[in-house]
Simulated scan of single mutants.
Amino acid sequence: MTRLSLPTLVLRYAGFALLAMAANLGTQRAVLAFGDPEQLLLPAIALGTLIGLAVKYTLDKRWIFHDRGTTPLPRQFALYSLMGLATTALFWGTETAFWLLWHSDAARELGAALGLTVGYVVKYRLDRRFVFAVAMTGEDSNETPREGQEQAA
């Protein structure tokens, strides 16, 4: 399988992160439209996170790590989700801090976007090492080299 160049990988991963962020924040807006943001903030964040996670997993599995399904989906998705716990805490903490500081939807969404951006960088490294490592070590492995490996010319 042809390896992606680093710029192509970064653009693809960032694009998928943006799609997942849009799904996440769109879901939050939809939930928050049903009533008082003070009461619905936690459910909105939780449901938005779940939707964003499902979108990102689906795109990463196929287009970043080129995993063709050798690991049973529930187990792999659980591991993928587990790798996201720390990054989700970072995202939620940043989003909540911005809300508490400025009490505005724009600030909350800015905090969410910042937290998600940093979280996705960390998450890629965790997923590459722990979730999709099997797919990356096979003949038809990931298009990106693992740390310490050189990229084919």
Rank of each mutant, 00 (worst) to 15 (best):
R75A: 14
Q76C: 01
Q76E: 12
Q76K: 03
F77D: 11
A78P: 10
L79V: 09
Y80R: 09
Y80K: 06
Y80F: 15
Y80C: 05
S81R: 07
S81Q: 06
S81G: 15
S81H: 10
L82M: 01
L82D: 00
L82P: 02
L82E: 06
M83F: 04
M83G: 15
M83K: 00
M83C: 14
G84Y: 06
G84F: 04
G84E: 06
G84D: 01
L85N: 10
A86H: 03
A86P: 01
T87P: 10
T87E: 07
T87C: 06
T88M: 04
A89M: 06
A89I: 14
L90F: 05
F91Q: 14
F91V: 01
F91W: 06
F91L: 10
F91K: 08
W92Y: 08
W92P: 01
W92K: 06
G93M: 06
G93I: 05
G93V: 09
G93S: 10
G93P: 05
G93A: 08
T94K: 08
T94A: 14
E95D: 08
E95T: 02
E95M: 13
T96L: 14
T96M: 07
T96C: 05
T96N: 06
F98Q: 00
F98H: 07
F98Y: 13
F98E: 06
F98I: 02
W99E: 00
W99Q: 00
W99R: 00
L100G: 03
L100Q: 11
L100D: 06
L101F: 11
L101E: 07
L101D: 08
L101P: 03
L101Y: 06
L101N: 03
W102G: 05
W102M: 04
W102R: 10
W102S: 09
W102F: 11
H103D: 09
H103I: 00
H103F: 01
S104R: 10
S104G: 12
S104Q: 06
D105E: 13
D105N: 05
D105R: 12
A106Q: 13
A106E: 01
A106K: 10
A106C: 05
A107G: 11
A107T: 02
A107N: 04
A107W: 04
A107F: 08
R108A: 01
R108V: 01
R108L: 03
E109L: 11
E109F: 13
L110P: 03
G111P: 07
G111L: 04
G111Y: 12
A112M: 00
A113G: 13
A113Y: 03
A113N: 13
A113F: 13
A113L: 15
A113Q: 11
L114Y: 07
L114I: 14
L114A: 12
G115N: 05
G115H: 08
G115I: 01
G115W: 07
L116R: 12
L116D: 11
L116P: 07
L116E: 14
T117W: 14
T117S: 15
T117L: 14
V118M: 15
V118I: 15
V118N: 07
V118R: 14
G119P: 07
G119D: 02
G119T: 08
G119H: 11
G119C: 09
